[in-house]
C-alpha cells in the first residue's frame, strides 16, 4: 500500500473513530439519554446476540429476496427499454427528457399507493424498488447505446460490420461502462427504497426490525440492526463496485 493510500485509509478510519468516540463520551457522561442513544457496550452485546442467535437471517433473507427481484426487474425492463429507445434519435428526444424528469420526482411518495396495490408483504417493496432502480438503468442504457463515439462506428462500418457482430464487438463494449454505472446506482436505489419501504409499512425485513425495536424502546437492539444493515450495505456496494470495475477493464 502506497503512502497516499495509507493516509486516505487513515482519514476514513479516523472519521468513524471520531463518531464512535463522540458517541462513547455522550453516552458515558449521560449527556444524551440512553433511551435515545444507548451505550456502545450495550449495542455491541446486542449485536453479538443478533448474529449469534441467527435472528437476523430471516429478515435479511426477506430483504435480499425483495432486492434481487426488484433489481432483476429494473435491469430487465431498464436495459431492454433503454436499448430500444437508443436505436432512434426521435425516440431518444421523446423519452430521455421524460425519464430524466420522472427520475427527479421522489418516487417514494407513491409508496402508499404500492401498499394499496400490493399490500404489506414483499410485493409493495419489490414494486417501489423496481420503480426506483429502473430510472438510472434506463437512462444510462439510453446514454450508453445512444452516444457511442461516432469514430468507432465509422471504423466498424468501414470494415463491413453490421447486425449482431456490430452489436457484440462495438456497441455493447462501448456502452458497457456507462450501463454498469447505471446498474450500480440502480442497485443502491433499490436497496435504499426497499429498506426505507420496510420501515414505513411491512410484515418483515431489516427495515421492519428497526421500526419494531424502536417502537419497543429497545434502542440498543435497534442500533445493532442499523449497524448490521450498514455492514450488509457496505458488502453489497463493494460487490457491485467490484463488478462495475471488472466491466470497465480497459
Amino acid at each position: 500500500m502506497t503512502d497516499s493510500k495509507i493516509r486516505i485509509r487513515l482519514i476514513q478510519v479516523s472519521m468513524f473513530a471520531v463518531i464512535f468516540v463522540a458517541w462513547f463520551i455522550a453516552t458515558e457522561t449521560e449527556s444524551v439519554s440512553n433511551l435515545f442513544l444507548p451505550k456502545l457496550g450495550d449495542v455491541a452485546t446486542d449485536f453479538r446476540d443478533l448474529i449469534g442467535s441467527g435472528d437476523a437471517w430471516s429478515p435479511l433473507s426477506v430483504t435480499l429476496f425483495e432486492l434481487v427481484v426488484a433489481f432483476f426487474n429494473a435491469v430487465v425492463f431498464g436495459t431492454s427499454i433503454g436499448y430500444l429507445v437508443s436505436r432512434s434519435k426521435f425516440l431518444m428526444r421523446a423519452f430521455e427528457p421524460m425519464f430524466s424528469s420522472m427520475f427527479a420526482v421522489p418516487l417514494i411518495i407513491f409508496y402508499p399507493l404500492a401498499l394499496l396495490f400490493f399490500g404489506l408483504g414483499p410485493g409493495s417493496k419489490i414494486a417501489i424498488g423496481s420503480a426506483l432502480g429502473f430510472f438510472p438503468v434506463v437512462l444510462n442504457t439510453i446514454n450508453g447505446f445512444g452516444h457511442v463515439d461516432a469514430g468507432y462506428m465509422r471504423v466498424a462500418r468501414s470494415m463491413g460490420a453490421k447486425g449482431f457482430p456490430m452489436f457484440r464487438r462495438v456497441l455493447l463494449p462501448a456502452a458497457l461502462p456507462i450501463i454498469l454505472t447505471g446498474y450500480r446506482i440502480g442497485f443502491i436505489l433499490c436497496f435504499l427504497s426497499i429498506v426505507g419501504g420496510e420501515t414505513i409499512g411491512s410484515f418483515s425485513g431489516l427495515g421492519h426490525q428497526i421500526v419494531f425495536y424502536a417502537e419497543s424502546m429497545l434502542t440498543s437492539m435497534m442500533f445493532a440492526y442499523i449497524i448490521f444493515i450498514v455492514i450488509i450495505a457496505y458488502i453489497l456496494n463493494s460487490l457491485v463496485f467490484y463488478l462495475e470495475k471488472k466491466g470497465n477493464y480497459y
Partner: peptide, 9 residues
C-alpha cells in the same frame, strides 16, 4: 483513420 480508430476495449 487519425483517431478513435482502435477499440480501447
Amino acid at each position: 483513420f487519425q483517431e478513435s480508430a482502435l477499440f480501447p476495449w
